[in-house]
Design a protein around this nucleic acid. Structure first.
Length: 512
RNA sequence: GGGCGCGUAGCUCAAUGGUAGAGCAGCGGCCUUUUAAGCCGUUUGUUGGGAGUUCGAUCCUCCCCGCGCUCACCA
């Protein structure tokens, strides 16, 4: 029971609530008559002020009490709504002694209240509501973390603000309630997703939704979460990508499609990995990976421009310029330049392993040539790719859904976009030859042992779809959370995901 | 999963082998234009949980839980 866990402080608030009820005041009334936002009220007053006050600005405002300064015969307070804060002034000769005492006695920081009155400007110059009447909208029984602002030379200094990451993530509602800059991150996130949609919609892409519960997973190298449908006695997987379903739609005649949604990967958690994350994938018929590169850099730049008003972002203390065109680096050349290894000279895993060993490069023994090359990229290229860069031309064996280069069957037309030393997106000229695709599935089956969960299972229906004819196309997957990290200057995914994955809290969540 | 670090009041933090303090929040009082309001007074804690060493542990040891960083894994 909530009540049994209350501390002394919380019991005090509960007592206030009960006293209010006993005195005929409802602490949780059903309706509010708020008729304008805080920001609108201030704007309306400033407009009236500029125009000589023909009519007083009378409003009903509502919001959460964020500051109270009782001064005997008057009280100042701030309430906050979605648009910001506004100051209240409660004066005894405006509302009467009884009303003022009611405020002082029953109202606490964190309560939601409704106030009615007239806007004016105080001696210190703050646009303020002269309160004529007020009432409780929702009593807060728990205390929000103390937090106060101080303005020094126009700079806002925050005192004792909530910073404990565990409380912030587990009780995100508290974090949001007291940290406006956290709310700002999620506004930018929403705008980013909206801008991505607008970019694709403008170009004739159709937004679709495909299954999250899939009988066969695929489209990426990752371990899936498993689940089970009781009625149908069916083993199901939470999708690790949208790819195989979206490309089926190209067969169906939707030749430009995209989906923004959640992927699930049963793997480690890190600053750039969360078990569920938001992905954008799009597929475009009659485009190859070079065309997709151009669209990608335009898309990212345009979204940044729309959301931030600039294509230059600050990240890790460096300025990153998203303006197209981005750098392009062929993997072979990049590794010659930065690792001193020409992978073309090492056509199999054994020879490549040997030269890596010689150069004291650590790697997991026994992996394929493609994975060794991937290791080289992670070691030598990824960390240095701060400015936006497309790494392109990947080994065939780690890219089972990408089309081989016509002149080099060991290499596929694939690229990844890197920004700030982090992979942002992955794309290729999609394989549309069903016979080749079948061969790739078979190879994957051989490369991975039966118990390896990340092997791509054969998807017969996907092959059949392709056999009906799939237009040549290019596709892209972009990590939306990582993109938002870049746009908001955050260094961990947890800061851009409202409720990031955490371990079980096996105790009272308020005292972990 | 491995390594390292951390966990003290609602929040931010301090302290010591002798069962803990500050500011803010809270409570009581004064105060009619304040804004980290101010002034006077005052309360708060199983020091994450459990076990051990010790006359005595918040501090030392071990186990567990959680958080962070990092490596592994992973696009």
């Amino acid at each position: 029971m909530l009540r049994d866990e209350f501390s002394e402080l919380e019991m005090q608030r509960l007592n206030k609530l009960e006293q209010m009820r006993a005195n005929g005041m409802e602490p949780f009334p059903t309706r509010s008559y708020k008729n304008c936002s805080n920001a609108e009220a201030i704007a309306a007053f400033e407009k009236a002020e500029a125009g000589s006050f023909e009519e007083p600005v009378e409003v009903v405002l509502a919001g959460r009490l964020r500051a109270i300064r009782n001064m005997g015969k008057l009280s100042f307070a701030h309430i906050e709504d979605r648009t910001g804060k506004v100051q209240l002034l409660l004066r005894v000769n405006e509302i009467g002694e009884e009303k003022l005492e009611e405020f002082v006695r029953y109202y606490d920081l964190g309560d939601f209240i409704e106030v009615q009155g007239e806007m004016f400007r105080t001696r210190r110059g703050e646009v303020t509501l002269q309160v004529q009447d007020f009432r409780m909208l929702a009593k807060a029984l728990l205390q929000l973390p103390a937090d106060k602002d101080e303005t020094v030379d126009g700079e806002i200094i925050r005192h004792a603000q909530l910073t404990d990451p565990e409380t912030r993530y587990r009780q995100r509602y508290v974090d949001l309630a007291v940290n406006p800059d956290v709310r700002e991150i999620f506004k930018i996130r929403a705008q980013t997703i909206k801008a991505l949609r607008e970019f694709l919609d403008e170009r004739g892409f159709l937004e679709v939704e495909t299954p999250i519960l899939q009988p066969i997973y695929g489209g990426a190298a990752a371990k899936p979460f498993t689940t089970y449908h009781n009625q149908l006695h069916q083993q199901l997987y939470l999708r690790i990508s949208f790819e195989l379903y979206l490309k089926r739609l190209l067969v169906g005649g939707f030749d430009r499609v995209y989906e923004i949604g959640r992927d699930f990967r049963n793997e480690g958690v890190s600053f750039k990995h969360n078990p569920e994350f938001t992905q954008l994938e799009f597929y475009m018929a009659y485009a190859d990976y070079m065309k997709i590169m151009e669209i990608t850099e335009q898309m990212v730049a345009q979204v940044a421009q729309k959301v931030l008003g600039t294509m230059k972002i600050q990240y890790n203390g460096q300025e990153i310029d998203l303006t197209p065109p981005w750098n392009r680096m062929q993997i072979r050349q990049g590794l010659i330049d930065h690792a001193g290894i020409d992978i073309q000279g090492y056509p199999d895993a054994e020879s490549l392993e040997a030269v890596m060993k010689e150069k004291n490069i650590s790697f997991k023994p026994g992996i394929s040539r493609g994975k060794l090359i991937n290791t080289l990229m992670d070691t030598f290229l990824e960390p240095i790719l701060i400015q936006p860069t497309f790494l392109y031309d990947y080994p065939r064996d780690i890219s089972p859904l990408a089309k081989a280069k016509p002149e080099d069957p060991t290499t596929v037309e694939r690229f990844e976009g890197y920004i700030g030393g982090m992979e942002l997106c992955n794309a290729f000229t999609e394989l549309n030859d069903p016979l080749d695709q079948e061969q790739r599935f078979l190879e994957m089956g051989h490369t991975y042992s039966e118990d390896e969960e990340e092997r791509n299972p054969m998807d017969e229906d996907y092959l059949r779809a392709m056999a009906y004819g799939m237009p040549p196309n290019g596709g892209l997957g972009l990590g939306v959370d990582r993109f938002v990290m870049l746009l908001t200057g955050q260094h961990t995914l947890r800061e851009v995901i409202l409720f990031p994955h955490l371990r079980d809290a096996d105790q009272d969540v308020r005292k972990p």
